[in-house]
Amino acid sequence: MEFLVDMTTHVPSGTSPDAVDDIRGLEAKCARELAAAGHLLRLWRPPLAPGQWRTLGLFSAADADRLERDLASMPLRIWRTDTVTPLADHPNDPGNRTSTSPLNEFLATMTITTPVGATTDAISDRETREAGHARELADQGILRRLWKLRTEPGRQRTLGLWAAADEPALSTTFRSLPLYDWMVVTTTPLSAHPSDPLGAH
């Protein structure tokens, strides 16, 4: 099972720079160990406010208890608050594909609301075309991962890891999706993290 973890660190006032550096060094070592064990898949930095420490991590664990043990083993946890989002398999997920592409990465949450009165055939047609287009985008290295999020009746929510030169290019990609006019998209640009298991991308 995979989880997205939003990790926000608050260093206590008065903490010496040397103590911070020591903890960060231990954190990087722990991240390498978790990655080697297959528990930490990716790390990114989202946009940060001044003075903010925040990391997004993609983890793999058998269940929430196993994930909590992994998160608790990380040295920065003494100063950190974690928000965990369970991720479910999506039928259009291209799977774990590594890429050396220089494109920027983005996380995008898509909330799809089926219009009132849409027929079963119309919905099925759109979903079939969406799946086909997702495969094409995955083959182009644009769609990297796709997961289901918790939903409400009549709505689907997905989280996707996407690659594009910039946000306007990504918006153009989204507009090409057959389900686009039924969805609301929220995008988070991602920056490279020094401890990302895939390294620079």
Rank of each mutant, 00 (worst) to 15 (best):
162 W>T: 02
27 E>G: 03
186 T>G: 03
135 R>C: 07
63 D>P: 09
185 V>E: 02
27 E>I: 05
177 L>F: 05
198 L>T: 03
8 T>R: 15
62 A>E: 15
185 V>P: 01
132 G>V: 14
183 M>A: 15
148 K>S: 10
52 Q>A: 12
126 R>F: 07
75 P>G: 07
27 E>F: 07
187 T>W: 01
13 S>C: 03
77 R>S: 10
113 T>Q: 11
165 A>D: 10
9 T>I: 15
88 A>K: 03
24 R>G: 04
174 F>V: 05
176 S>M: 12
72 A>E: 09
191 S>H: 14
167 E>N: 04
66 R>H: 13
142 I>S: 01
86 P>K: 09
94 P>T: 00
158 T>Q: 00
10 H>N: 11
30 C>D: 04
148 K>V: 02
188 T>W: 01
93 D>P: 09
58 L>V: 04
4 L>K: 00
56 L>R: 01
188 T>E: 00
57 G>M: 05
101 S>I: 06
161 L>T: 00
101 S>W: 06
10 H>K: 10
80 R>Q: 12
158 T>K: 02
168 P>V: 03
181 D>F: 08
32 R>S: 15
17 P>Q: 09
191 S>V: 01
55 T>R: 07
31 A>G: 08
102 P>S: 07
122 A>G: 11
14 G>L: 11
120 T>R: 15
85 T>S: 04
47 P>M: 05
179 L>H: 11
134 A>R: 04
38 G>S: 13
201 H>E: 01
46 P>S: 09
18 D>R: 10
197 P>M: 04
53 W>F: 13
35 A>G: 04
106 F>W: 09
193 H>V: 05
19 A>L: 13
35 A>M: 04
190 L>E: 06
82 D>L: 00
162 W>V: 03
139 D>G: 07
187 T>Y: 02
31 A>L: 04
36 A>S: 11
96 N>G: 02
117 G>D: 08
112 I>H: 04
8 T>Q: 12
105 E>N: 03
60 S>G: 14
183 M>R: 14
166 D>S: 11
21 D>S: 12
59 F>H: 13
49 A>H: 09
161 L>R: 02
114 T>K: 06
80 R>P: 01
78 I>D: 09
186 T>E: 05
41 L>H: 02
5 V>P: 02
137 L>T: 01
66 R>G: 14
170 L>I: 02
143 L>N: 00
58 L>H: 04
4 L>N: 01
23 I>N: 06
187 T>Q: 00
29 K>N: 07
88 A>N: 10
10 H>I: 13
16 S>D: 14
50 P>H: 11
91 P>Q: 08
36 A>P: 01
118 A>M: 15
54 R>K: 14
42 R>N: 00
12 P>T: 05
18 D>Y: 11
136 E>C: 05
69 R>P: 03
147 W>P: 00
80 R>T: 06
44 W>H: 00
75 P>M: 08
70 D>F: 05
11 V>C: 10
2 E>K: 03
30 C>Q: 10
199 G>A: 12
21 D>W: 07
39 H>D: 11
192 A>G: 10
123 I>Y: 15
100 T>D: 15
84 V>W: 03
155 R>M: 13
140 Q>Y: 10
108 A>S: 07
121 D>V: 09
131 A>M: 10
140 Q>R: 15
64 A>H: 10
11 V>W: 15
148 K>R: 13
22 D>E: 14
20 V>W: 09
54 R>H: 13
